[in-house]
Amino acid sequence: MSTDASHEVRPAVDPTAGRAPRPAEDTGQRPGHKDGMRRKGLSESNRPLWMLIPGGVLMIIIIVVPLLLGIYMSVLNLDQYTLRKWISAPLIGVENFVEAVTDSPLLHAVWLSVSYSLLAMVVTLPLGIAAAVATQNAFKGRAVIRSIFLIPYVLPSFVVATVWRTMLQPGGIVDEALSTVGIHVGLWLNGPQTFWTLVLVQIWASWPFIYLLALSGLQSVDHEVHEASALDGALWWNKLRYVVFPYLKGPLALAFLIGMLHHINNFTLPFVLFGVPAPTDVEVLPILTYVTSFQSFRFGLSAAMAFISLVLIAIPLFVYLRAVKLDDADTSGAKK
C-alpha cells in the first residue's frame, strides 16, 4: 500500500541497528528464530483470539481480496469492454506480462524509477547527515531550526508538488530568478529536463526524513565517546569520520531502504507535478501503471505492470523486513 504510510511508521528496529557494531549475542533474539521460544510475560491460555476477527475480516475483505484479484487480473484480457463483466473476461495467461516487458515502456519506467530513486537518495543522504550533525550541539534557537528543517517533511506531497509546479512554470519565479544571473534553463515541466525536475523536488521533499533518522543515530553516541575522542585530540573531521559516522550506519541503512521504497512507489509527486499523461522522461512505474489502466483502459496489462513493480519492491522490502524488530523490547535481551 501506500509507502507514504510506511515512511511515517518507521517501526521498532533492532536496537543494534542504531549502534556501533556489537557482539553477536543479540542475534538469537531475531524474529526469525522465534519458534519454540517462549515469550516471557505473554500468556498461552485464554487467548482471546476472537478479538482478531473484526479487524482481520475487514482487512481480508478490503486488502487481501483486492490483492489476490489484482494478481488474477494480470492474467485476464481486461479492458473497458470486458471490465463490467470481468468474471467472464477471457483468460490469456502470461500474455500481459510478455506484452508489458517486450512491447510497453515498462523497462524504461523501471529504469527511470530506480535511477531517480537512487539519485534522490544519493543527494539527500549528505544533506540529511549535515543537518543532523549541525543541529546536534545545543545552541540558541536550535529548536526553531529543527522545526524549520522538518517543514518539507510535514507538508503533504500534493502541496509540495503544487508549489513547485507553480514555481517552475514557464516564466515563473525560478526562471525569473535564474535569468537575472544569466542562466536560461528552458522548460522544467515538459521535455527532457523533467527527469531532473522530479529528482530536485523529491530531494527537497525527502531530505528531512534522512535528517530525522540520522539525528536519532547521533543521539545514540555515548558521552564517553566524545570524551575519548577529545582526549585523543581528534580534530572535528577525524572525529566525525572515524568516531561518529560509524554510529550512523544502521539508521542510515534503514533510511536508505525506506526512502527507496517510498521513492519507487511515489505516485503523488510526479502526478501533481506533471499531470497525466506525463512526459516520457518522467513516466515512472506508478504513473505508467496508472496511465495504462485509467487512460488506455488496459486493466489486465496494467495489473501485470503493478505485479512486476511489486516484485521489484519486494527486494528492498525483504531486506527491510529482515532488519526491523517485530517483537517488543521487553521480551528480548536487547532491553537496556
Binding site: 500500500m1 506508478p286 513493480s309 511489486l310
Partner: peptide, 16 residues
C-alpha cells in the same frame, strides 16, 4: 502491506 504499490491495490478496488 504498507509498501505494496498503491496502484496494485487501487486497480482491483476499482474493478470491484
Amino acid at each position: 502491506l504498507q509498501s505494496v504499490p498503491g496502484t496494485l491495490m487501487v486497480l482491483p478496488v476499482f474493478v470491484l
